[in-house]
Simulated assay, not measured.
Amino acid sequence: MDTDVQRLRQMSGLVTPMALRVAVTLGLPDRLRDNPATAHELAPELEVDPLALDLLLGHLTTLGVAELTDDGYRTTDLGALLGADAGNGLNNQLHQDTAAGRADLAFIDLIHSIRTGEPAYPVRYGQGFWTDLAEQPHLRDAFDRQMNNRVRDSIPRIVAGFDWARFGTVVDVGGGHGSLLAAVLAANPGMRGHLVDLEESAAGARALFREHGLADRAEVTGGSFFDPLPSGGDAYLLFDILHNWDDERAHRILARCVEALPAGGRVLVVETLGGNSEFDLVMLVHFGGRDRELHDFERLAAAHGLRVESVTQVAGGRSLIEFTR
């Protein structure tokens, strides 16, 4: 019984998660990686209270992400994984002034989401997640980097696991900086691509396509997927898009794809088909969305005259659902 109580206490505690997030936000893992320092030395530099900082560093030492040396506190190898250049996405996820780190703080109002079915993000920040990204470019940039990091290792398997070459042109709807579309085009020289995303992300996609020598086969349009989409695509791709939205807005996105779809065209939806309870709560609190099961997608699609043609397991737990009229 005591073990179970202790386990529940550890699971419900906020101290350690917030200590790690504050450490990342202050830049401690990088600052102390090769230059140990005491709390009193660091405090003026970071503009924080020295006693409070010493308490934070003490807990980070208990966690094993810092250690106390003769010269002061130093980042351990474990703590180095929280560094900005560690390449694992943790820093971008935990920093309180990035899109994900900021959004996670809305979990303090999870009860609002459970009571209403609506996101908690606007309760904390006064407006929705996507509005914040539109108004604060550094949040948009952090979000795009987070998405790139999430799919980076999965892209080769997604490209290899589906017959993309049968489509002359794929329109990547909400394609971010274009990492997936670039990989698809590179593997299929006879294809063309057209990426649509808000201008801040579209600019990054243009640069990526130029960098990979794909600018002659990859067109980019800055705009919202709630507005009319470019015509001329044989397939309209929604990669990790619909889970970010409630059913009402998911219908609006699908309607735009169908509106642009030619006879014989396809809508390709790549999503995880349910199964991750923690991620579902993240989608709810951040956006009011969720991962859906196949029958949920069938129901959404049927309202737009679409039916499932095939379901292909691709990578990272994701499935590619191909819809046709």
Rank of each mutant, 00 (worst) to 15 (best):
D2L: 13
D4R: 14
L14A: 14
L20F: 14
A23N: 01
A23R: 00
T25G: 01
P29A: 05
N35E: 13
A37E: 01
A37N: 00
T38G: 15
T38L: 07
H40C: 05
E41R: 14
L56Q: 02
L57Y: 07
L57M: 15
G58C: 00
H59S: 09
L60A: 06
T61R: 04
E67L: 03
L68Q: 05
G72N: 01
T75W: 09
D77A: 11
G79V: 03
G79K: 04
A80H: 12
L82D: 00
A84I: 03
A86N: 06
G87N: 10
G87D: 12
G89E: 06
N92E: 05
N92V: 06
N92L: 14
Q96I: 13
T98N: 09
G101M: 07
A106L: 02
F107K: 07
I108P: 00
I111Q: 12
S113C: 11
T116L: 01
T116D: 04
E118T: 06
E118Q: 13
A120C: 08
P122C: 08
V123I: 00
Y125S: 04
W130H: 14
T131Y: 02
T131K: 13
L133E: 10
P137R: 14
H138A: 10
L139C: 10
D144N: 14
R145F: 00
Q146N: 06
N149W: 11
R150L: 07
R152F: 01
S154E: 12
R157L: 15
D163T: 09
W164C: 09
F167C: 01
V170W: 00
V171I: 13
G174M: 04
G175E: 00
H177Y: 11
L181Y: 13
A183H: 11
A183I: 13
A183L: 11
V184Q: 12
A186C: 05
G193R: 10
H194R: 11
H194M: 03
L195I: 01
L198C: 00
G204L: 12
R206V: 11
R210D: 15
R210L: 13
D216C: 00
S224A: 00
F226W: 06
F226A: 05
D227L: 06
Y236W: 07
L238D: 02
L242V: 08
L242T: 06
D246N: 02
I253P: 09
R256M: 10
V258R: 15
L261A: 09
A263D: 14
G264M: 09
G265I: 02
L268E: 06
L273V: 01
G275D: 01
E278M: 13
V282D: 10
V282W: 06
M283F: 05
L284N: 05
V285I: 02
E293R: 12
E298Q: 15
L306E: 05
E322W: 01
